[in-house]
Design a protein around this nucleic acid. Structure first.
Lengths: 205, 205
DNA sequence: GTCTATATAATGATAGAC
DNA sequence: GTCTATCATTATATAGAC
């Protein structure tokens, strides 16, 4: 209760948006923050203004040194795995998932941020000899991140039945067990036997 | 105009839900179908009932012989690519994308259906010698499908700005150009140099 | 800054005439 | 089957008192 009312509204909004989606009303948010509904619009102008402030806040937290450390995930875990392990970032993960499902400016920022991060640690892996060099490191980083993020997101969406709150840590554990082995199999042995197929594709496009 | 009013409402709903999302109102659907708003609920009981009928209709169309042929995509194109090429299935693709973004019963059915399909054509690829055999073919099919579908979905979501209608064919073309090459690179040469990492993972879990 | 009260608009759903 | 009219609810946003 040592935060200003505006900050409490913002944090309550992040939590409720994450839990129930962006269709939650300002009344519910106000109630959760312990203020009146009118005060929400007094501070943020409109629901959309509140949403924007929430987006900015989430992005700011992601960019913090502390959270930056945990956005470098292992390849088999997916991007959101490490964060979901940390209790206090649970609401943040939920909000990010909702944003990525709904699209919008924050979603794009998040993806670009993660792709950029991935490029760094993949490059480090190549330098260490653990990861094979690529024809186009930037494109590969983007591809891997779109796959990891996309499949994680889809898995969450399928699990998210009705209004029930999703346990992200549990979901990520299950996801890792289900997709980890085939991912590593693909990463180590590949999939296709014909090594010329990439050249064929490139000639056609 | 040779369809019954109920069928026109259903088809209009599929189109509008796909275009604008499930928050579209019954009035807009009724207007698009050229009927009154009251008639919608008269025929379908509620908006939820209409949604269920739409889900069933989409699933029925997907299961049709004709569409079945196009749900077997090339590995580099993603699942929805082939369908989006066919003019009349555009609204169907849009509706499927919305469903997969929102979750729910249809989303699960679609994924299971596609995973099952993928298992078949991957098995054929293995038999033909084009695809390497897997430790666990079912898990691999699921993994590849979750990746393909998930990244495609994420790409669509990021592109889908505001209320503007998304051109799925164009989006898929761009997606293929962006993610095709790194996908094929990964599929042919793999990613990791250490071939024992899968065993290590399996021992730890 | 914060509240209560209210304006305004849109929603899903229903009743009853035809 | 189909319409018009309406209800009940909910939503966002605003006005004005304190």
């Amino acid at each position: 209760m040592d935060l200003t009312a505006a900050a409490r509204i913002r944090d309550a909004a992040i939590e409720l948006f994450g839990e129930r989606g962006f269709q939650v009303g300002v009344r519910a948010i106000a109630a959760s923050a312990g203020v009146s509904a009118g005060l929400v619009n007094h501070h943020f102008g409109s629901k959309d203004g509140l949403r924007t402030v929430c987006d900015e806040r989430v992005l700011e937290l992601i960019r913090t040194e502390k959270t930056k450390a945990v956005t470098a995930p292992s390849l088999s875990n997916g991007v959101l795995a490490a964060m979901a392990d940390i209790e206090e970032y649970g609401p943040l993960v939920a909000y990010m998932v909702r944003s990525l499902q709904a699209g919008g400016p924050l979603a794009e920022s998040l993806v670009e941020h993660m792709v950029s991060d991935a490029e760094g640690w993949i490059e480090a892996g190549v330098a260490a000899g653990a990861i094979r060099p690529s024809r186009d490191p930037a494109a590969r980083a983007r591809y891997l991140m779109m796959n990891n993020l996309g499949s994680t997101l889809l898995y969450f969406t399928l699990r998210q039945q009705g209004g029930a709150k999703l346990d992200y840590r549990k979901a990520i554990r299950e996801l890792t067990e289900q997709l980890g082995p085939p991912a590593l199999e693909l990463y180590t042995q590949g999939l296709l036997t014909d090594p010329t197929i990439l050249d064929t594709f490139l000639k056609e496009h």
